[in-house]
Design a binder for these strands. Structure first.
Lengths: 212, 212
DNA sequence: ATATTCATGTAACAAGTTACATGATTAG
DNA sequence: CTAATCATGTAACTTGTTACATGAATAT
């Protein structure tokens, strides 16, 4: 029942086809909700039956027909009710972190590679988010946008996604630096056992804790 | 099959009962993997059958008996293999963010309350993480711990959890401040229509972007 | 007195994942 | 000419969630 509300929320930004939603769930929505296209198609069918959305088929030349879904009054009401209910705590599933937890019993080089890949993926994602942000702002400052824009929900969730990916990138760099330092220490130990590296980072690179 | 690896990883930090794991999954592991106690009990049974863990019953006075699970060689090997496989991208499900996305079509006051509750919950969680961190460090500096400690996987995942909750707190404060500013602007509009607030925040309070 | 902690489990149901299928169009 | 995009769907299977059940001990 929770995917349902994520879909309803996505549809407040305009009508969409299942395919459109799949893209959105891959891009912006991915910050806070994951779903595969199959889940979306199945859920949209159920939502149709429940009267939360209506569908119209749009005939396209040169493209397969598509079904565009719109919120109904019932759908809008269901969404309103949802904002009233206590949200469940966040659920995260991150295999990379499981691998890092098990790093020492596993294949360190493989994990390092996975972290490098995550770093690259996060950088790509962050760039896309920044573009979306520029697009929303249309040249205005954040302050002016937030003060004057009618609807700021999407901007606020995007802002969370931006800091999330920024921190992912930092963390990946922090881990890679730490592992590299341990490697070179081990190399040094083998040739020059008296040597140790100078201290390097404190609490994950300038993380501004204790500021609040 | 992925919960399985999270359990195996958790067991590298020592033998545990289902109940112990449930606590761990509620505290530290929660940063990167969610599972209910029921899932754990069920999965542990399957892992026993598969020979990835062994169980012994510990008879306790004044407490119900418990089953303590330990990694077998097969379990350790399975975990090693897992670190070799490409991790699936992170999956997040956050109802609060869905509510924020739908804020304007929903009950703004209710959403504000939910954000305040999240803020409080994140502060509690962060304090617990910081305690765990102090406990791991045992008075050493982070640099010295990371350079010398045999196993640093747990510290690294904890570090990610700490920044995650730190950013959650910031984001909640940012949203609450933004909403308050909009409220007072609306109030001012009703009594003193010429007035606007001075600009307030830029990109989510001093987020250090563009630094990399 | 009452709530929380300790400790495990069953059963029913809801949700998520994976594999497969189709088929035209356009970008590189 | 190959890969990606557009666009939807079925079916089988694996996971995750929720409700219920038990029952003593300890902390408030």
């Amino acid at each position: 029942m929770a995917l349902r509300h994520a879909i309803l929320a996505a549809l407040t930004n305009g009508d969409a086809s299942g395919y459109d939603l799949a893209k959105a769930f891959d891009i912006t929505v991915a910050n806070y909700w994951s779903a595969t296209p199959q889940q979306l198609y199945r859920e949209l069918d159920k939502m149709l039956e429940a009267g939360l959305v209506v569908a119209r088929t749009v005939e396209q030349e040169k493209r397969p027909n598509k079904r565009m879904y719109s919120l109904t009054e019932e759908g809008t009401a269901a969404l309103h009710r949802f904002t009233t209910s206590d949200p469940k705590p966040i659920a995260i599933r991150d295999e990379l972190l499981v691998q890092v937890e098990a790093m020492e019993r596993g294949d360190l080089d493989a994990v390092r590679t996975h972290i490098q890949q995550k770093l690259a993926a996060s950088e790509t994602k962050l760039k896309r988010y920044e573009k979306t942000r520029e697009h929303l702002l249309e040249g205005r400052s954040e302050a002016s946008y937030l003060a004057n824009e009618r609807s700021i929900g999407s901007y606020l969730t995007l802002a969370r996604g931006i800091t999330f990916e920024t921190e992912n990138i930092r963390w990946c760099e922090f881990v890679l630096t730490t592992l590299a330092a341990r490697e070179s220490r081990n190399a040094a130990d083998r040739t020059d056992p008296g040597h140790t590296l100078a201290p390097r980072s404190n609490v994950h690179r300038g993380q501004p804790r204790g500021e609040r």
